[in-house]
Amino acid sequence: MDEVFGRKDMISPSRLKELSAKSDVSGFIQLGSHLGALAITGAALWFSWGTWWMVPVFMLHGTLINFLYAGQHEMSHSTVFRTKGLNEFFGRLFGFVLIYPRDFDQIQHFAHHRYTQDWEGDGELGRERYSMLSYLLWVLGPTYWYSRIRRVLRFAFGIVSEHYIPQDQHAKVIREARWHLAGYALIALLSVATGSWLAVKLWLLPMLVMKPVHQLQNTIEHLGLPHVDQITENTRTTRTNALMRWMCWNMQFHTAHHAFPGVPFHRLPDLHRTIFVEKGRKPHSMTYLGFQLAVIKAFWNGRTEADYPDDKIWIMDDTDLEPVGPRAAKRV
């Protein structure tokens, strides 16, 4: 996706062109380090299974698996590698591992970029407004995994109901879901035939259980920000450490990414500095823990997302989270 959603005065064309250059080397360094870390934690988990050492290793391994989505996301934008086919190959591989088919994810995610925070058009807002219970179920994983698995099954049966998926793309996502389902069935059959628990121990169980850590990133990016057509207002940047930025492929610089999604992940820190720091500007930003505490406070005493206005920020640092007015009227 090479579209630009930020204002033209945020960055010069020459600087944007410089930052948009893709690199196979940078892509393989990030990919290799992530997969290498997974190989180490996977081996450690296998040999420590049944001991107390497996607990921290299990947690780290499952977290690393879930954050493969950061790579899949960037490969959907075709910004990890200069060689286009590499983005597609590894993007499909990660999509299979994460039960999140690439073609569907790409369609949904591009709708999210084009209509960020628009309840009607944003592909990632196809949900009811959060209550405390529904939010916790999403963050902890039960409804996340239910929706992902159910969608693959529904597509495999030829049922596509998402309004943001064009009619001419239905056959593609249906075919993709059927290939995924066939692959999962083959792994299950081989596991039963060989009596092996390898797929469960090193893939499914860690991935399912450790989803909440990855949900810290998924939820912080837009929730509680205005539903307006302005990237610097509807997107949040995350303040965190270098380890988390590596594991999330720099997606914490989310406002910069949304403004100029064609810039590769490894240049996002530079893009952030160019469009914000050097100009004395600050995007909306919070820490992971600060955000989650603010959300819990916002939903306390039976409040829901519907109690807050669509056109104002209601989750931020040091803010009064009392509802400030009725929900904004639906945009036409």
Rank of each mutant, 00 (worst) to 15 (best):
Arg175Gly: 03
Trp314Cys: 10
Leu190Met: 10
Leu189Val: 15
Gln106Lys: 13
Trp246Gly: 04
His73Leu: 12
Tyr100Asn: 12
Ile29Phe: 14
Val80Met: 12
Val200Gly: 02
Met132Asn: 07
Lys17Glu: 14
Ala294Arg: 05
Leu64His: 02
Thr274Cys: 14
Trp49Glu: 05
Ser33Gly: 11
Thr194Met: 14
Phe104Ile: 01
Pro309Asn: 11
Ser147Trp: 11
Arg236Phe: 09
Ala242Asp: 06
Phe104Arg: 02
Trp249Gly: 12
Gln108Leu: 14
Arg281Lys: 14
Ile275Lys: 05
Trp300Phe: 13
Lys279Ser: 12
Gln215Val: 08
Pro101Ile: 00
Met54Lys: 03
Phe265Thr: 10
Val97Gly: 01
Leu268Glu: 06
Ala37Leu: 14
His214Trp: 14
Asp307His: 08
Ala259Ile: 05
Ile159Glu: 03
Arg175Glu: 04
Leu31Arg: 00
Trp145Cys: 06
Trp179Ala: 02
Leu136Glu: 05
Gly85Glu: 08
Lys17Pro: 01
Phe157Trp: 00
Leu189Thr: 13
Lys17Ser: 13
Lys84Ser: 13
Arg82Trp: 13
Phe253Met: 10
Thr238Lys: 02
Leu35Lys: 01
Met207Tyr: 00
His227Phe: 15
Val80Arg: 00
Ser23Met: 07
Gly262Lys: 01
Met247Asn: 03
Ala182Glu: 00
Thr287Asp: 07
Gly50Tyr: 02
Ala294Ile: 01
Arg82His: 13
Met1His: 11
Leu202Trp: 04
Thr232Asp: 14
Phe110Met: 15
Phe90Pro: 04
Glu162Gly: 03
Val4Asp: 06
Met244Asp: 07
Gly6Val: 07
Ile40Gln: 09
Ala185Asp: 13
Asp320Glu: 03
Val209Ala: 09
Leu93Val: 15
Ser161Val: 08
Ala242Leu: 09
Trp49His: 04
Arg114Asn: 11
Gly36Asp: 06
Met54Asp: 12
Tyr69Leu: 11
Thr274Met: 10
Asn87Ala: 00
Tyr69Arg: 08
Arg175Cys: 01
Phe265Asn: 10
Lys330Pro: 04
Arg150Met: 08
Ala298Phe: 05
His272Met: 02
Gly32Arg: 02
Met10Trp: 14
Leu98Gly: 06
Leu181Ala: 07
Asp270Gly: 03
Leu223Trp: 07
Ala306Met: 14
Ser285Glu: 15
Glu3Tyr: 09
His222Lys: 03
Ala306Lys: 15
Phe5Trp: 15
His258Gln: 09
Arg239Glu: 15
His163Glu: 08
Gly27Lys: 02
